[in-house]
Design a protein around this nucleic acid. Structure first.
Lengths: 346, 346
DNA sequence: ATGCTGTGCATTAACGTTTTTGCATTTGCA
DNA sequence: TGCAAATGCAAAAACGTTAATGCACAGCAT
């Protein structure tokens, strides 16, 4: 029996220290085989003391897996890239990376320049697609290859098929939108506008749906402004300007992307419309930019870290295929109250 | 001899098809052993026809490597995260991912939330740190662990030690800054301001240096405005407003980050200062936002894809350790002329 | 006592590469 | 012609893990 080949502690080192065979260690640590709990615990403790970390390559080799998960940020065909906010993306990526590594898997990021062939040349065990758009080429590519797939945000489709067996993690954007509209109304808003983009993702169409339902329930006239082109402060500025320059401008704006909200803030500032005194302003997706804006922006926090973590866990379950196939998972949203929606007169 | 175990074509399948042993195939494809070129070529062709792709896990297992490279976007302690632009980051990440995968390595992204312990729990063969800041905890962490390290952008330090054996890939920002200032002057600018951030990275201090040298050479008075806090359109708006509201405002602004330039554009629009007729505007780091701005913004293109690719190649050379240790690499910049710097009166 | 059924492990063989070693054969040179 | 050196390749071991199989022993029923 060879021990401690190269400094790194292997399964055989643990076996030697615990006075058992390598197989037993493997079984004990993976919950397989026939072993009494006492032995399992003893081995787990020894492994822990020795700082044993299983070698992912060896494990993947026998399992016939690549040990890699792909994650791609989707890009709409024709729609400029930029649906995802940087903070949102990096937070989600970060937690997803950590979650994957805890399972000994590496998360590989495919950028939008790969277009539809993102994972064509890359060998992976499964993939996550962030915010897929209508008829997403990435999604069909992955499906064609027969790879396990999880999306964050649902796959939007022309037909309304909410439960078609796809696996996704999503916020309940309909409910989230309603909760932030409630907040705005609580703060005294009487004429709330929606600043959004073309509904190419499930997220944007959910927000529109939530807004329209809420307006109908509260007897308000819907007031929607669509930001065209790139979804950034520039297009937000323009779309918000259109609202502010109306004969009867809104007294509150909810923007479905933080960068749109920031653009609205700049538009208000340019017109010397005071936020929050004359205009309440809230955005979706919290970010550092929202936090540091003047005034700081109220936001609908989406918890991207939780979404990333759950998407990875779901994908791994799907790949391993032993536990029952997971389906959907909703991550709760939260209204993060800041100065931009402070009650007027208070 | 076993062949074609599970659909996937392995080295033995190639060996059988070429009528040689697995060893010979390995040697032929990796340029090792003693083989005539004729055999090497024949085997390479057979491998190609069969679509052979070496199994990364098996290869890493033998080599005692993890098969993973880490890449971290640095975060300044105290300085708000956001030095990197989303487009810049995703482009660089994307090319780096591809480059790594071509070597059978997976690139793992550590987000800024990991802070100094980004790669503490992650087993990797080497790391890339993007735009390290002064006294970067990430850099010292990686150095402590004795891991091969490549940075994009140089490691800024109090003492001026330009050649301290560290490995980096960088743009020549001093020259790049000068080239875009030349362009602005060519287009008729006579009073060019620099819109930048606190110099925490080599990149920002290079830009400041290039600007000051250029001003001295051209007998211009330096005019610098520093964006405070988060580096986004909001802080760019404020810092640019300070310039535009001066008694003698500049007739051109060069912003060291595209988001600052976009903020400057919004500030100009709010003041009804026409770009480019009354103000020439250029930014650093091209992005889709710059491309789609109204008017489209001239930019100093940094070629993040090339930087990412070269950083990975350099890191791999460092890890393999056979070829001579690489040191530094400059990636050329390019002035991307757009409407925001069109010659006045033309 | 004798078999039968579990229990608690160890042995052995994979997984797909690379590396080391070694054995023929050919070539070079005296 | 003889012998060393170079050439062209194959066999076998190794990397660290998991999966399949098997063996010894204990408890239990007959």
């Amino acid at each position: 029996m060879k021990v401690n080949t190269k400094g790194r502690v292997g399964i055989r080192d643990v076996a030697a220290a615990a006075g058992v065979s390598a197989t037993t260690v493997s079984h004990a640590l993976n919950g397989k085989g026939r072993l009494p709990d006492s032995t399992r615990e003893r081995i787990a403790q020894v492994a822990n003391e020795l700082g044993y970390r299983p070698n992912a390559s060896a494990r993947n080799l026998v399992a016939g897996k690549t040990g890699r998960l792909g994650i791609a940020v989707s890009s709409a065909p024709g729609v400029p890239f930029g649906l995802s906010d940087f903070d949102y993306f990096i937070q989600m990526l970060s937690s997803a990376t950590t979650a994957a590594l805890e399972h000994g898997l590496a998360l590989v990021v495919a950028g939008p320049n790969h277009e539809q062939t993102a994972f064509e040349r890359i060998e992976i065990d499964g993939a996550i697609v962030i915010d897929p758009v209508v008829n997403d080429p990435l999604v069909s590519d992955i499906r064609t290859r027969g790879l396990p797939l999880v999306t964050t945000g649902r796959i939007p489709s022309a037909e309304a098929t909410p439960d078609d067996g796809t696996c996704w993690v999503d916020n309940d954007h309909v409910a989230g939108t309603r909760s932030i509209l409630d907040h705005l109304a609580d703060q005294g808003a009487e004429r709330i506008a929606l600043l959004t983009s073309t509904p190419v993702t499930s997220y944007t169409s959910d927000a529109a749906e939530g807004y329209e339902t809420w307006c109908a329930e509260h007897g308000c006239e819907p007031l929607v402004s669509i930001a065209e082109g790139a979804l950034n402060e520039g297009s937000g500025f323009v779309a918000a300007a259109a609202l502010l320059d109306m004969p009867e401008p809104p007294d509150a704006i909810y923007a479905t992307l933080d960068r749109l909200a920031l653009g609205a803030l700049l538009a208000a500032r340019a017109r010397e419309v005071k936020v929050p005194d004359e205009l309440l302003l809230a955005g979706c997706t919290d970010s550092q930019a929202s936090e540091w804006a003047q005034p700081p922006l109220t936001a609908l926090a989406l918890d991207p870290e939780e979404i990333g973590r759950q998407a990875v866990e779901m994908l791994i379950t799907l790949i391993e295929g032993d536990r029952p196939r997971p389906k959907h998972q909703y991550v709760p949203t939260r209204v993060l109250t800041r100065e931009s929606t402070a009650k007027r007169g208070s």
